[in-house]
């Protein structure tokens, strides 16, 4: 039995050889912690992800560059309610403004409030979720009961109340959206953290008297990060739709803003005859929301173990 003890490497077949054989027959979870690069590559191989990313990129460019390019969403071109033509690709609205310019410029607002609101929600919800999952016990119960109450409130009605109370300025809207989406994210992150807490690496860190903050930030957060990423994107899509809805209801942006929801609201009465005044902003909202949602779906698929 005198085999060389310490330095000899385990004579295993290369790691890859283990997985398919075992997985095929035993339904064992195969993925041995997918390294990051393949995940990015896997995303790029999915057509829905690439198309969605291109659409989102397009709207980001529109939001950032419209001033540079010199689009004018506010002045009268001279013709009221003109049909789409070469000079006005999306036609003009009842005040003679270019629908093309207004649709592109509308991305500015949609991509300001939605993303910042979603980031707010994720930071707030993520932090509370990690805390609830880590400490469990009374902290957990207290936080979760509060969240349970907040989660059952219909978001749009909740938002209307908040906006009525705190106003519909950009900053107020971002905070409101962050507040509305945080509880849902917190619940999901808490569940993910609870699953991680059962694993030995957390116990080992605690046994070495690692500080709580470090355990949460360095051990737990990186491991629930894929879940968080999916939640950011999902709430982003939802938040964009929600800002448009608020504007549509007259609670968000005020004229003459090029906000998509506001445009749809203002031009609704022309839908029968001058459809282009409504169709293009509506398509803009739809394309952005659906694309973001699809990106979230793809991330979820790829990071599934």
């Amino acid at each position: 039995m005198g085999m060389s003890v310490l330095t000899s490497d385990e004579n295993l077949p290369e790691p890859g050889a283990l997985t398919p054989a075992a997985a095929a027959v035993q339904d064992v979870a195969t993925a041995s912690a997918t390294p990051r690069r393949p995940r990015a590559r896997a995303l790029l191989r999915r057509p829905t992800f690439v198309i969605s990313a291109v659409i989102v990129l397009w709207w980001i460019l529109a939001a950032v560059l419209w001033k540079v390019v010199g689009l004018d969403p506010y002045s009268n071109t001279g013709k009221l309610l003109a049909a789409p033509s070469w000079s006005q690709p999306f036609g003009t609205d009842n005040l003679g403004r270019s629908v093309f310019a207004r649709t592109l410029v509308g991305a500015d607002r949609a991509l300001l409030i939605g993303p910042l609101g979603a980031v707010m929600a994720t930071i707030l919800g993520g932090a509370l979720g990690v805390i609830a999952g880590y400490f469990r016990g009374i902290v957990d119960t207290a936080l979760m009961r509060v969240f349970d109450v907040l989660v059952v409130l219909p978001p749009i009605i909740f938002l209307i109340v908040l906006v009525t109370a705190f106003g519909s300025g950009t900053r107020a809207l971002i905070l409101c959206i962050g507040f509305v989406y945080a509880p849902g994210i917190a619940r999901i992150i808490r569940a993910a953290v609870l699953a991680e807490m059962g694993k030995g690496y957390v116990a080992s860190a605690r046994l070495q008297r690692e500080s709580r903050l470090r355990i949460m930030a360095l051990e737990l957060v990186p491991n629930v990060w894929p879940t968080m990423l999916v939640q950011i994107t999902l709430s982003l899509a939802s938040a964009i739709l929600m800002t448009a809805t608020l504007s549509f209801l007259g609670l968000g942006a005020q004229p003459p803003s090029a906000d998509w929801g506001l445009q749809i609201n203002a031009n609704m009465i022309y839908l029968q005859q001058q459809w282009w005044t409504v169709l293009f902003p509506a398509l803009a909202v739809a394309s952005l929301v659906v694309s973001v949602q699809l990106i979230a779906d793809n991330i979820k698929e790829v990071s599934r173990p």
Partner: peptide, 13 residues
């Protein structure tokens, strides 16, 4: 200190 049964779970991936 503890050495756990399942090294897959006891190391942070």
């Amino acid at each position: 200190q503890v050495v756990f049964q399942n090294a897959d779970l006891s190391l942070n991936p």
